Amino acid sequence: MSTHSINDVKSLLVQVAEGDEQAFAQLFKLHYNQLGDFIYRITESKPLTQEIVQDVFLKIWINRSTLPAISCFKAYLMVVARNHAYNCLKQIAREKSRQKQWTDTVLHQAVSGQHETMSGNTAPDAGKLLEEAVELLPPQQKNVYLLSRQEGISHEGIAKRLNISHGTVKKHMVLALRFLKTHLRTNINILILIITTSFRH
């Protein structure tokens, strides 16, 4: 960058610090593409990159009074952008971890037969999802599942009570658990999407 260009940027910084919105727009336009390319190499996500670029410039506008003291705006901009990008990625990783934990907990309910509504950081609809999924099972699979998971009856005991073979009980349990896991995973992902979208709006 030439000395003239550096002086132009410093002049823009002073104007932005004084609240000049047109100068801020020029500053944004001057660095937008380069900053976007820099952030994209970190995030590998165009939507996230656009969001971070907007956040970074919003932060710069909010703290515009400090701009005249910055000796190299480009370096400052890249540091701010890099830190914000890494923070966003960490937040996304934590959110994915929480979602996975929630999904795994609900799926564990299907295997263990725990129908209580979960508390803590998990969604209150998790137990309800499982109950609704159980109601969708074919009658015999539902009977076998409930006898095993809710009443704790062994496969042998279920076979005697329902007057079916031990192999049939095992087959019904395998099919029931397979259906519950598939159904719950699908609906949990939909619920997560709905919740995430509602938070964004």
Rank of each mutant, 00 (worst) to 15 (best):
T43Y: 06
T43H: 02
T43I: 05
T43K: 07
S45R: 07
P47E: 08
L48T: 11
L48M: 13
L48N: 05
L48P: 04
T49W: 06
Q50R: 09
Q50D: 15
Q50Y: 10
E51D: 15
I52S: 02
V53K: 08
V53P: 05
Q54D: 13
Q54C: 12
D55G: 11
D55P: 06
F57A: 05
F57N: 02
L58H: 10
L58Y: 10
K59E: 13
I60F: 06
I60W: 01
W61R: 02
W61V: 04
I62D: 07
N63P: 00
N63V: 00
R64F: 01
R64K: 12
R64S: 07
R64M: 00
S65F: 02
L67S: 06
L67G: 02
P68K: 06
P68L: 03
A69V: 08
I70R: 04
I70V: 15
I70N: 05
F73Y: 12
F73G: 10
K74C: 03
K74H: 14
A75F: 04
Y76S: 06
Y76N: 05
L77T: 07
V80S: 15
V80T: 15
A81Y: 01
A81N: 05
N83M: 07
H84C: 07
H84E: 13
A85S: 15
A85E: 02
Y86T: 08
Y86K: 12
N87G: 08
N87M: 09
C88L: 12
C88F: 06
L89G: 02
Q91Y: 06
I92D: 14
I92R: 14
E95L: 14
K96D: 14
K96C: 03
K96N: 14
S97G: 07
Q99F: 01
K100W: 10
Q101K: 09
T103W: 00
T103I: 09
T103A: 11
D104R: 08
V106D: 08
V106E: 07
L107N: 10
Q109V: 01
V111S: 09
G113A: 12
Q114F: 05
H115D: 11
H115Y: 15
E116A: 10
E116P: 00
E116C: 06
T117L: 11
M118I: 13
G120A: 03
G120V: 02
G120N: 04
N121S: 12
N121C: 08
T122Q: 10
T122P: 00
T122R: 06
T122N: 11
A123F: 09
P124G: 02
A126H: 08
L130H: 02
L130R: 01
L130A: 03
E131H: 10
E132N: 13
V134C: 07
E135M: 11
L136Y: 10
L136G: 04
L136T: 05
P138M: 00
P139G: 00
P139H: 00
Q141P: 00
K142F: 01
N143R: 14
V144L: 03
V144N: 03
L146F: 04
E151V: 09
G152P: 13
S154F: 07
G157I: 00
G157M: 02
K160M: 04
K160C: 07
R161L: 14
L162A: 07
L162P: 10
N163V: 04
N163H: 08
H166S: 13
G167C: 09
